[in-house]
Design a protein around this nucleic acid. Structure first.
Lengths: 232, 232
DNA sequence: GTTCACCAGATTGTTGACAATCTGGTGAAG
DNA sequence: CTTCACCAGATTGTCAACAATCTGGTGAAC
């Protein structure tokens, strides 16, 4: 093995093994924030994280810089970093941004979609309906995300996809609340069906409108929940 | 004032003095990329940049990580960083994203705008018209950017503003070409007038439509230029 | 009792050296 | 002439130590 790729060297005992330490730290910490392992407002001490991840402090450090750029972490000089707290106003704003960007994605997806892909989306809809009737809100919500992601993929707009992904990452925590609103699940299902129907027609304008209609409704639900929560 | 802010310590002899080295490196390098001091595709060697900026290699290093997150720099492990080259397809996609996001901003701006602010925008339009008649395309283009930025500001949507700013940063280099297209300047002026008129009515839908119409036109111009340039 | 300066501990920012990896060129084998 | 292993130089990734800064608490002055 002369030069050979170091693909399977297995130096520190993880699975993929190939990325640099800093990249691994970034991936892990990002997933930790998204998954709830690191809570909003929590202090992120470099040495502590380095020890917990088994990586150097430097790797953690540059990760924090990258996560700050993503809007997931807040940093102030000499005072350290915390998981950024997304206010309800910001969550609403993010949802509005998602609304227009996913609308754009839907428009493009409608124009370049094959019949097979339409069937695939209908399949997802069917699964959602099943889980909805079974009363499993969590699974329904998960399929919801899958459907949205797939539509964005089909749009074949990588930069737009990246933007949407970044926005989604910032308010995973606020996402849960809307799906729990009473009566929301059924309506959401109908809206998703409308989106897929519009995509199937190949009419970009229609698909964009359907997507925006749906997300505007999610936004309204979020706003009504905020009002109810605010009165302490 | 007990502890007292260290606002005017003046340690290394620059103007603002307060940010950490890494922040300064980030700011300088970003502006360098935007301003053309660092050209697309150019290699970014850490030690060289560190020496040129008079900062530590580590500061440069974390800057590069942040700029990569911004999409301005491309990095691969052990092989270094380069200023990212934005392809024409990507430039087009960025314009589409800007179109819907600035449309959103225009909608919000229309709803919350005061008569004084409308007058301010009309003032900018007047200046644009002057420079246009004087034949100064560069000044017109600059005022163009100012107008767009101001509208985004008036929307009072900080996260959306950040997204738009990031997109704008990525294709400053492609922006110049569209303004030079023959006959484009006059039409652009008319479109901007339409946008301000729509904003003045307070009708969000109308303002959004006007903004999207304008940027769709810019996109079409860019696409036609691409065709002409591609045939080598 | 309140206010303030000040100090010790903790944490971040910076520096320099060292290890790991890539790149381009060189020379031998076929 | 082509192909390929291999090596030196350049460059990046990592580590450990040191300097700079913040934070919370303690005690004196009033």
């Amino acid at each position: 093995m002369t030069t050979g790729y170091a693909g399977t060297v297995m130096s520190k005992g993880r699975t993929t093994d190939k990325q640099t330490e800093a990249d691994e730290a970034y991936a892990v910490m990002r997933q930790s924030i998204l998954g709830g392992g690191l809570m909003p407002g929590e202090r992120l001490v470099e040495t502590e994280l380095a020890e917990r991840l088994g990586l150097g402090r430097n790797a953690v450090r540059t990760s924090l810089a990258r996560l700050e750029q993503d809007g997931l972490v807040e940093r102030s000089p000499f005072r350290g970093a915390r998981v950024r707290i997304i206010s309800e106003a910001e969550a609403a704003e993010i949802l509005e941004a998602r609304s227009v960007l996913e609308g754009l994605a839907a428009r493009h997806a409608a124009e370049y979609m094959t019949p097979e892909q339409v069937q695939e989306l209908r399949g997802l809809l069917g699964q959602m309906e099943q889980q909805h009737q079974a009363g499993d809100l969590l699974a329904t919500s998960e399929l919801n995300s899958v459907l949205h992601r797939r539509i964005v993929e089909l749009a074949a707009l990588p930069m737009v996809a990246k933007l949407i992904d970044g926005l989604h990452a910032q308010n995973v925590r606020h996402q849960f609340r809307t799906v729990l609103a009473p009566g929301r699940a059924a309506q959401s299902l109908a809206e998703h069906r409308a989106i897929v129907d519009a995509l199937a027609t190949g009419d970009g304008e229609l698909a964009e409108a359907a997507m925006r209609h749906h997300l505007a409704h999610v936004l309204r639900t979020l706003r009504s929940l905020q009002k109810n929560t605010t009165r302490s």
